[in-house]
Amino acid sequence: MSRFMLLRSLALASFIAVTFTTHAFAHCFVGARFLPATLLTDDPCVADEMSIPTVGWSKTADVPPASQLDISIDFSKRITENFGVTFSQGWTQIRQPDGTVASGFGNLETAFQFQVLKDPSHELAILTGLSVDWGRTGSTGAGFADKFSTITPTINIGKGFGDLPDSLSWIRPFAVTAQVGYQIPTDSFDFTQNVFIPQQLVYGGTLQYSMPYLKSEVIDLGLPDFFNHLIPLVEVSLTTPMANNFGNPSTTTGTVNPGVIWVGSYFQVGIEAMIPINRESGTGVGVLAQLHLYLDDIFPRSIGQPLFGGSSAPTRKLTF
């Protein structure tokens, strides 16, 4: 997995290069609301953070199905308070029922993101972005990466319900996030496979219930400390072909992922079940797990700062 080593070296070089000493606002807070980084869709904030790794296991839609193992990492860096860049890299292994194994890297992905809005009083955050999947940067010969690039404009929205009246206090810990993108390949036809390359709508979101918010903003139930760190959630990730899909299935594919995230002061751990929405999306129930690091809290005087224009505001952390 030499590309993982390359990205780790890149991250280490960034740690050394960045020497700013001011304090910044930590990860995705909107007022009293903390929106965690979810496992399949982005949270609606620019941040300094790293997922290392995200691991998924599932069964493919083939007949008979194969076992698929996915391992990925991503590294997010704020350039300014409102503009950030994320680098992502994944590796996949597919094991056929007869024991045949194939593996390879996907293409390197870069996302450029801009914070449009943070409204603390309404716990509302909006993020726009442009994601580029760089063709020919992965294992194209093994079929795990495309030879063409893909450009995806996206918008991410997060909304907490903390502005509801006290009569609805038990609903206030709920929050929703949504992500919508339109995937545009740089080629319209694959001459090696003699198929059209479709443009696709990629979308999803989460419904989450924050136990830290319940304790700090609604009521302290006196639960064991472990439970006060939990955010149960249901995440959905879907893809629908929209254009240039001649001769290809037009079926929407994706998964529904119930799970939970445990959040700490410097990292979070998440695990979700992966339930295919139809036969074309996979077979049986898979699993997805992630370790996510808050670099703005781990390295508040170096890598956790924007490269330019760092704030002098105190670092915001979760309280339990």
Score class of each variant (00 low, 15 high):
Q199I: 08
V269M: 09
T152P: 03
T315I: 12
D225H: 12
A32T: 11
T152A: 10
K147T: 03
S139Y: 01
G222E: 05
V256W: 11
G282S: 03
A243G: 07
F191E: 12
S139C: 02
K77G: 03
I71C: 03
F320T: 08
A178F: 09
T283W: 03
F105A: 09
Q113V: 09
T137M: 06
F114N: 11
E49K: 11
A66F: 02
I275S: 14
F34R: 05
L127R: 06
D43W: 04
V218P: 01
P153L: 01
T239M: 12
S188E: 13
S121G: 03
G129H: 07
K215I: 00
L221R: 08
Y203R: 08
L223S: 01
G282N: 02
I184D: 11
T38I: 03
P224H: 13
H27C: 04
L35V: 14
S131H: 01
P276S: 14
D166R: 09
Y209I: 03
Q305N: 02
G259V: 07
S169A: 15
L230K: 10
Q179T: 14
V218T: 03
F112W: 11
K118W: 11
A26S: 10
D42H: 00
T54C: 06
P212T: 06
F308S: 10
W91S: 07
F25K: 12
Q199S: 14
T252W: 09
G264E: 06
S149V: 03
L35Y: 11
P306H: 02
F83I: 10
P53H: 04
G160S: 01
P276T: 13
S2D: 15
K159H: 10
S2R: 15
G31S: 07
L130D: 13
A111M: 09
S58D: 01
S167H: 06
S149H: 05
H27L: 00
N228Y: 12
L117P: 00
E272P: 00
V287R: 03
D98M: 07
G270M: 14
G99V: 05
L223N: 01
L293F: 02
V202Y: 10
S121R: 13
V218E: 04
D296N: 07
F196G: 02
G204E: 00
V132C: 09
S210V: 10
G84C: 14
F114Q: 10
S2C: 07
T319A: 05
F227C: 06
T92S: 12
N244W: 04
I184V: 14
A13V: 10
T100G: 04
S76K: 04
F75C: 00
G282K: 00
V46S: 09
